[in-house]
Each structure stands twice: as structure tokens, then as C-alpha cells.
Nucleic acid binder design. Structure first.
Lengths: 118, 118
DNA sequence: CCGTATCCCTTGCGATACTG
DNA sequence: CAGTATCGCAAGGGATACGG
């Protein structure tokens, strides 16, 4: 169970970035965490279209790439908190810009935008 | 041969953006076109790891989403020019930021970065 | 020069059910 | 509460060869 890429050979910086925050959900997860620390359940509620399996998978990969940190409280009921690392935090402005671009285009085309609780 | 998504239902702006410039090559292609108009062959040479099939496919999708325009000269030998549309151009700053983030992280980890001709 | 066509393989992703 | 396990499909992507 390796983490995607053997980064032994030279690559493009754009690719490097996309391998870490690309994919179907990672950018959205990072963006949500941009507003601060969140528990697993809170993340689930804020993105109900992501199955637990995919959410956990994305979170583990983000953790492996050190974009987020994961803190487990061994108590009953269990509690796990996720938050951005400094490196992950530096990614937020880029995603924010992307998001603004998306909003602008969607507005132009009169497409319905989901902002809250999604 | 439809273009990926039926955008009938409400979605997140981040997703909207990623459906247009996400994937394995699109951001890189857009970024290269950021420096100006390029012919198909020039794009190929600048990104030799992309097979013609994948390059053409990505270009067609970008064209379909109106991020780039394609101008064909019906002459021998044939000549096709690609360039960013205004909407596509607005995407460049976000990708640029992502690229800078990538470069910074790669530098920290002493990973070899390919900038020219890739 | 600028692509297409074909074949095939891998990976991502989803649904559903179950657990410490 | 915060996950795993299992199964399975479908899209994405690579290699190679050919075409207007």
C-alpha cells in the first residue's frame, strides 16, 4: 500500500502539486479545513456526497503528504481531529483563487452554486 | 462523445474548476499556453511525456470548455494554433500559484525540478 | 504536420455492510 | 464516533500503428 508516486525522477512543479491536492475530493477537503480544525464527523456532514471510504482514503493520503495532521483521542466515544499543517495552509490561497474563478464562471452561466454545507 | 459532466445540478465551485482544469495534463497545458500562442507540435515538444492521443484529447476538452481556442490553417503542411481564451487566461494565476507552491516544496525536499522543456 | 484507431490495463470510485 | 472490508464497475490512461 504505497502512496501513489515514487518520486525518484525529475518532474514538473505543477504535477507535483496536482498529485497532492488533485483528485476528486482533496482540494475540497483542504478548503473546508481552511476554516480551522474539524472532526471527522463534521467533515462528513459538510460533504455528504463523499462516502466514508473515500473520505478516509483522501484524509490518509493528505496526512501522508503532510498537508494535514490527524489527532486521535483514545476515549469513548472516540474523537479524531483534522487540521491543516503549515504546508497545507500554504495551499489554501491557490485553492481559494480556483474557487473564485469557478464561482465567477458559474455565475456567468447562471448555474446553481452550492457554497454552504457542501 | 460528450464532455464529461451534465451540469444540471448544483455543485461546488471548487469541483467546477477541477472538472475543467483537473486531470493529469490540463493544468500543465494551460500553463504552457500561458506564455502565448503555440502550435500542436510545439506543445508536443514541450511535454514529451504526453502521448499524442492524450494531448489531443485534453486539447479538445479544453476547447469544449472554452478555455482554449483552436485555429486550423488548411494548407500543406497543415498548421494548427492553440491559445488561451479570456476565460482560460483568468485561470493562469491560480495555476501559477500552485506551481510556486510545488516548486517551494520540491526545493525543500531537494527534489529535481523540471522547468524548461517539460 | 497533425492528428486517429485500436486494444488493453490500471486506477479511481461507488455501494453496501460491518466493527472497535 | 470514526472508521474497515469487500466487491465490482467504468473511466482514464498507455502503447502502438495508421491516416488526411
Amino acid at each position: 500500500m504505497k502512496n501513489k508516486v515514487a518520486e525518484t525522477k525529475a518532474m514538473c512543479a505543477v504535477d507535483y502539486a496536482f498529485q497532492r491536492m488533485g483528485g476528486k475530493y482533496k482540494a475540497r477537503i483542504l478548503f473546508h479545513l481552511g476554516s480551522g480544525l474539524m472532526r471527522y464527523g463534521a467533515l462528513r456532514k459538510s460533504m455528504p456526497d463523499i462516502t466514508p471510504k473515500m473520505l478516509t482514503q483522501a484524509l490518509r493520503e493528505l496526512e501522508g503528504d503532510e498537508l494535514i495532521s490527524r489527532k486521535v483521542y483514545h476515549e469513548v466515544p472516540p474523537k479524531v481531529e483534522y487540521q491543516l499543517t503549515p504546508v497545507g495552509t500554504e495551499l489554501i490561497p491557490s485553492i481559494g483563487l480556483l474557487c473564485e474563478w469557478g464561482k465567477k464562471q458559474m455565475t456567468k452561466k447562471n448555474l446553481p452554486i452550492v457554497t454552504d454545507f457542501y
